[in-house]
Design a binder for these strands. Structure first.
Lengths: 139, 139
DNA sequence: TATATTTAGTTGTACATACAAATGAATCGA
DNA sequence: TCGATTCATTTGTATGTACAACTAAATATA
């Protein structure tokens, strides 16, 4: 009995995920796309010529998901793809690079917003715990 | 620079969410539906005649999402809906009630699985922190 | 070298979830 | 009591995400 929901990591994690995704969507609204795309673009800018596999690993998403993200960014003219054997290398376009500052600012706003509510300490600690747990659960 | 991803609560939360959702889907596979439906059915069994609003609040999902979930459970013959003024009351059917044990076992398996990896203490602590943070971020 | 296996990416499809707009019931203020 | 507002739900539509099946390239094995 009691509350089986509050005890279930599946539920509690997904709940926070919904809450913070909403927040992130709001702060990233000025960029014209959602936070995952923003972070993906930052990765591509930081490391031009990354393979899709590498990007998917860094973001910890399925390859098919990454394909879809890259397609969309390419459609918006923010990245280019060039096939290289069985791999695909991804590069930012000038338009893509021009967005870096905007994305970093959105990211900063998001951080400030949740840190102001949770406390900088707590937020940092929580992130670290989440990374650690994800790492462990993925073996 | 450094790793902006590991520091971002949006990203770290969503990552854990993907990891644990996969795990939960595996453990709930025997029930024939996904974990959220299982928990929803448990809520309805525990409190027959709940309004959809109440259920959506307990699960912390949008009302429209709840409508969709209930539709699906109704389609599988696990719950009934009766309109009551502007509200809708939800009741479990016999078939629905018959699934309670199965769902509880799936939930138990999920708990055991992640507790074995993270440690019971850590898992419990993490859940509590996530609830607290979600509560705070939602005001 | 020829075949088998592995690896990277894409495509079709499905699902959880949300928001905005619409509907219909209940309540409140004049 | 009537019109305005609020509230619960539904519906249309969109998005992030995954898996399974497929293709094509690379590597390993015989």
């Amino acid at each position: 009995m009691g509350d089986f929901l509050k005890d279930c990591l599946y539920f509690t994690t997904n709940r926070l995920s919904r809450v913070i995704t909403k927040m992130a969507d709001e702060e990233f609204a000025t960029t014209g796309f959602s936070p995952m795309y923003g972070y993906l673009l930052l990765l591509v800018i930081r490391d031009p010529g990354s393979t899709q596999k590498k990007l998917a690993d860094q973001l910890d998403i399925a390859p098919s998901t990454l394909t879809r993200f890259i397609e969309k960014l390419e459609g918006k003219g923010l990245v280019n793809r060039t096939a290289q054997g069985k791999s695909v290398l991804v590069y930012p376009t000038e338009n893509g690079k021009a967005l870096e500052e905007e994305i970093r600012m959105a990211s900063k706003r998001l951080h400030n917003r949740y840190e102001q509510i949770l406390g900088k300490e707590t937020a940092g600690f929580l992130s670290k715990e989440l990374v650690r747990s994800s790492d462990q659960l993925e073996e």
